[in-house]
Amino acid sequence: MIDIPADATVRPLLIESRSAPAYCCLIDDMEIDDGLPWYHDIYHFLRLGVYPEVATAKDRRALRQLATRFVICGETLYRRSPDGMLLLCLDHASADRVMREVHAGVCGPHMGGHMLARKIMRTGYFWLTMETDCCQFVQRCPECQIHGDLIHVPPSELHALTSPWPFSVWGIDIIGKISPKSSSGHEFILVAIDYFTKWVEAAS
């Protein structure tokens, strides 16, 4: 048991909440004020073994820890992914182009922010604030805001639709118009399902 003097001052423990992943906090901004990319210090440390001139001892330690995840091939900086894949490091302008192409390009399915970040990583690209930037990019996408689901209904319990015996309750749906037409010239399909046996009948 530890004895604490009566006149001792007890300072409260301060816990700081951050909205970004911890590794993003090692570098203040993605783009430095002088226009250099976010990986400028990492690249020069790996290439020349030098620290920034204004770096403190804490900054140097953080830079060494961060640089262990990166590798230079030729003149290009890559980040090692957990599965051993090398991800090309992008600056801010290139990251915007990649997000726009993957999200809304020729084959872009307008996926959500987290899925967009994972797909970009599978494509082979990386920058420090990927998830945050992708989520903000999706929120600014006009098509996603226009065609997105509007979920304003409060949650409620699901009510199962039961059937007491076979063929007492049916569900009927119409599919169409279908193109091309059927061999008999029909353009619609009538589908009926028995709720008890799950028996399906379909006719054009």
Rank of each mutant, 00 (worst) to 15 (best):
D7I: 15
V10F: 07
V10I: 10
R11W: 12
P12F: 09
P12R: 10
P12V: 09
L13I: 04
L14F: 10
L14Q: 15
L14S: 15
I15Q: 14
I15G: 12
S17V: 10
A20V: 15
P21T: 08
P21V: 13
Y23A: 13
Y23C: 12
C25A: 12
L26E: 01
I27M: 05
D28E: 14
D29P: 07
D29L: 10
D29F: 09
D29A: 10
M30Y: 08
M30L: 15
E31T: 11
E31F: 07
E31C: 11
D34V: 09
D34T: 09
G35R: 06
G35T: 09
P37L: 01
P37V: 03
W38C: 02
Y39S: 00
H40I: 05
D41K: 02
D41G: 02
I42T: 02
I42P: 00
I42G: 00
Y43W: 13
H44V: 03
F45Y: 07
F45G: 00
L46S: 07
L46F: 08
L46A: 09
R47T: 12
G49T: 09
G49Q: 08
P52T: 01
P52Q: 06
T56R: 13
K58Q: 13
D59H: 03
D59W: 02
D59Q: 05
R60W: 10
R60Y: 08
A62L: 07
A62G: 12
L63Y: 03
R64D: 11
R64E: 13
R64V: 11
Q65F: 12
L66K: 00
L66W: 01
A67G: 05
T68N: 13
T68S: 12
R69G: 03
F70Q: 02
F70W: 06
F70I: 10
V71P: 06
V71H: 15
V71R: 10
I72N: 00
C73E: 13
G74S: 06
G74N: 10
E75W: 10
E75I: 08
T76N: 13
T76F: 15
Y78E: 03
R79G: 00
R79E: 01
R79T: 02
R79K: 13
R79I: 03
R80F: 04
R80I: 06
S81P: 07
S81Q: 14
S81G: 15
P82T: 08
D83P: 06
D83L: 06
G84L: 08
G84F: 11
G84N: 12
G84P: 10
M85W: 15
L86F: 11
L86H: 03
L88A: 02
L88D: 01
C89W: 00
C89H: 02
C89T: 05
C89F: 05
